[in-house]
Design a protein around this nucleic acid. Structure first.
Lengths: 217, 217
DNA sequence: CCTCCATATTTCCAATGTAAATTTTTCTTC
DNA sequence: GAAGAAAAATTTACATTGGAAATATGGAGG
């Protein structure tokens, strides 16, 4: 029972404070320089204090990545609701995806680098799936994803996801050079292909695809 | 003056041996576990010996990434030469891209993670560009990249690159689950969109890609 | 007030990357 | 060929890191 909304045991809500401090350190110093000790020092506790709340450094990074996925989803959702289903909504979601990645590059890389976190963490998986679902739902409203499309819905989703994710990654890593003001050279709607299918694929339809499961549920 | 074809100073060609050992350590233990000391130990020299040949750990990783880009290019080029320009050649190049990524996941991640290497290294930049050029050249032979395509050649290249790269990344990170035998759920030619352009983009353009939108019009 | 227990600290340790000084081997020059 | 110069590699040392173990702290419930 908390007497105030802040003070609890010794520090207060150290768990949340560590995640917040970790995110700040992350964008300030970069993924290579975040350390348990620097994060703990920022909060003002000893470097072993996080042990009571997280499973080591990777546990803390996992919580940070989970928070990242939630923000990521929110960033996509932001523009989605303003547009009716269709191309405009797709663009809005993709722009959100890209915007988040470019504004939080270190966090974005952390989210998608399994070596830094505990990939089988339940909260992380759930947040990751929720984030992906925003994109997925938008894609399902498009005409090139109508029932009967070869490969089923997974193919369309992953095609779209791969494109957006790859574009974000290449921009973050500097493989594709950005404009002087930091903007990508092409907007999402400019770099979005029609996502139609090559004639030979259409002709051979229906193709049997079966292995289309992801995290499930 | 080398008395034999390899023996030079004390060890011989330590520089190449370190790169080779580093690549072995990389795929065996993963990117998080490679260390200067473990690589040096594998070669049988002290942990400070690499200092004479590389600029610290990042220098060594840079050399490894450079080697990775060369192999990457070779893997793409392998299938390209067997096919005439067109969709088949595109598939071959993309399959090479993907195959390399899935067979050398740790090296692939190293290549595209600027924080681990010295991004402004000349050899690295050149090898990276050479690798990209394989994909670029193939893309330029396609009909949806003919002169007049909106956005110019860069747009087409980056659209294609983003898709392949994103698919590879999502597979490596486990975001898109692979088959039990390790194969991706969709082959490259299955997940390749027509890369035509959305109507609102192409309507005022001379060269739309025919058959881009499946079944509807 | 007193005990319990989650929380946090202190202390310690192995591993890492890097720098400096030193030793060993090879090359160059006479 | 010998001596000195240069290159290569080792030894030693150090600051940082993540983590383990033992200890101290302070609020909750009796």
């Amino acid at each position: 029972m908390l007497k105030e909304n802040r003070k609890k045991y010794h520090h207060g809500d150290l768990k949340a404070a560590l995640v917040e401090a970790g995110l700040a350190e992350l964008e300030e110093k970069g993924l290579e320089s975040v350390s348990l000790r620097s994060i703990a020092a920022r909060v003002g506790v000893s470097h072993t204090a996080p042990k009571n709340h997280f499973d080591g450094l990777r546990g803390l990074l996992t919580a940070m990545a989970t928070d990242g996925f939630r923000r990521h989803a929110a960033e996509m959702q932001r523009g989605v609701e303003d547009h009716p289903p269709g191309k405009a909504r797709l663009d809005a979601a993709c722009n959100g995806y890209l915007r988040f990645a470019l504004e939080n590059p270190e966090l974005f890389k952390l989210m998608f680098t399994s070596r830094f976190h505990l990939s089988d963490d339940d909260a992380l998986k759930q947040a990751g799936w929720a984030s992906y679902s925003v994109l997925r739902d938008v894609a399902h409203g498009l005409d090139w994803d109508k029932a009967g499309a070869p490969g089923g819905p997974w193919r369309t989703e992953w095609m779209l996801w791969s494109l957006v994710h790859g574009y974000a990654m290449l921009l973050i890593d500097g493989e594709i050079r950005r404009e002087d003001d930091g903007a990508p050279p092409f907007r999402m709607d400019e770099i979005m292909p029609g996502f139609g299918y090559f004639p030979d694929v259409i002709d051979n339809r229906p193709k049997p695809f079966q292995g289309q499961r992801r995290g499930e549920d």
